[in-house]
Nucleic acid binder design. Structure first.
Length: 426
RNA sequence: GCGGGUAUAGCUCAGUAGGUUAGAGCGCCAGAUUGUGGCUCUGGAGGCCGUGGGUUCGAGACCCACUACCCGCCCCA
């Protein structure tokens, strides 16, 4: 039997209401905060991600689904890649369509996207090779930290609306590329004399990504870690001031946060503000549900005009997992039919087709099966469908035009005309 | 990419030191109950025990490989 490819999965109807809910709440947030949707292609030229996300990142050098497109006689095929994230594509579109051209100074372009991304990682709970992200990008000439705080305020609303509590907002400033390079050098200098005392993983991190040493859980490394310089000690003055203003904006909005000087993002394009939201319930080791930050200069890297950028992405898969059980149960119930039609006998069946049509034209969600069942069985089916009401149609009802409408949760039943039913349930 | 765990009915899981016809609960079907579901009772259907090899008189169980999922590492949403 042919099954799904490793790391991919089917989202089945039973879970779909949860996905819809997350998407609906997100779209409502975007409407309120003035973001407009953009859809970019699922695949792009490989070069876009190599330059945008960064050649040195794990994502680019070992996780991309890259393939050579079919060539022609006179020309070789080009290298294409399934998008591992969407920011590079959105910035590409921003440049390509000159979305900045009709903007006044300081005016931002606020975009959001929804869709699948692809990374060839080892699958785990909350980590898939095809996964879904919802994200926003604020692009323009302004790098006002108020932009950042407002976006995080939107996320805060969003999580509350989904009843996802027990989360932590982690923030940090990774500085300008230049100050970060200076810091990394200082960090490596501080680590070098202690290499022998570090664990194997940390010696490896020293070579590849020294900042990761801070995340080490090994006891013997902890003492060393405490002595190390943090990036906040080495921020350039502008970045430091920017970070202070950002925190003040969060404070003013009553949003609590934890500064984590060790938090870094895995994509090269981040500058200054970086943040993550981690969930503490419902997820395993993959508990970062939102990640984002500032990426001034990405546009230039891709050949566009000088542009400031700030954005985030959240994992839809993980957000769905983070929904509390009780909330998930309520959400599932919401996508059930209004009415389940129970008919008795062939004449009632023919009549029921018309009734179903009328109710549907009246705006109701109507479930009806075509099998002529015994009443008892049909009522069982009605209950199973999750419908709030069963509508009973037998020979008596056909001749009177009054139908039995039974509320399944209470068992209460009344006789109503079609118009009466639509009126009651609308 | 590295390490560890798991794989038995639609679902969640039992299955004793390898020994005849592989079990339970839930779900499904039928009946008790001939136009009124949920509770109860009775009966029933449904499994090449993940796949492929091996050991053995005999394998769901033991060994090997593969695959998938899960948990860490790594990375990240």
């Amino acid at each position: 039997m042919i099954q799904t490819v490793r790391g991919t999965r089917d989202i089945l109807p039973a879970d779909m209401p949860l996905w819809h809910r997350v998407e609906d709440v997100a779209r409502e947030g975007f409407r309120r905060y003035g973001f407009q949707e953009i859809r970019t292609p699922i695949f792009e030229k490989t070069e876009l991600f190599a330059r945008g996300v960064g050649e040195a990142t794990d994502i680019v050098h070992k996780e991309m689904y890259t393939f050579i497109d079919r060539g022609r006689e006179d020309r070789e095929g080009e290298s294409l890649t399934l998008r591992p994230e969407n920011t590079a594509s959105v910035v590409r579109a921003y440049i390509q369509h000159r979305m900045y051209a009709d903007k006044s100074p300081g005016e931002s372009t606020k975009l959001f996207y929804v869709g699948p991304m692809f990374r060839r990682e080892r699958p785990q709970a909350g980590r898939y090779r095809q996964f879904y992200q919802i994200g926003v990008e604020v692009l323009g000439t302004s790098d006002d930290p108020a932009i950042e705080a407002e976006v995080i305020e939107m996320l805060d609303w969003f999580l509350k609306e989904l009843k996802i509590a027990n989360t932590t907002l982690l923030i940090n400033s990774v500085g300008e590329p230049a100050s970060r390079a200076v810091y990394l050098e200082k960090l490596r200098e501080a680590l070098e004399p202690k290499l022998d005392a570090l664990c194997g993983d940390c010696r490896h991190r020293y070579e590849t990504n020294a900042l990761r040493v801070f995340d080490c859980k090994v006891e013997s490394c902890q003492a060393i870690i405490l002595e190390l310089p943090t990036i906040t000690d080495w921020l350039d003055d502008d970045s430091r001031e920017h970070f202070e203003r950002f925190k003040a904006h969060l404070d003013a909005r009553g949003i609590s946060y934890t500064v984590n000087p060790r938090m870094v993002r895995g994509l090269d394009y981040y500058t200054r503000t970086a943040f993550e939201i981690v969930a503490h319930d419902g997820l395993g080791a993959q508990n970062t549900i939102v990640g984002g930050g500032r990426y001034d200069g990405l546009s230039e890297t891709l050949g566009g005009p000088p542009t400031k950028g700030f954005g985030f992405a959240f994992g839809l898969d993980r957000m769905v997992m983070a929904l509390p059980e009780e909330e998930a149960a309520l959400i599932r119930e919401a996508e059930t039919p209004d009415v389940y039609i129970v008919f008795l006998g062939q004449a009632a069946r023919e009549h029921a087709f018309g009734v179903a049509g009328e109710l549907r034209r009246g705006g109701l969600a109507v479930a009806m099966e075509f099998e002529d069942r015994k009443m008892k069985k049909a009522m069982t089916q009605a209950a199973k469908s999750g419908a709030r009401y069963a509508l009973i149609i037998g020979d008596d009802e056909v001749s009177s035009g009054l139908y039995g409408l039974k509320e399944l949760s209470t068992g209460e039943q009344q006789s109503l005309s079609l118009a009466g039913i639509i009126d009651k349930l609308k």
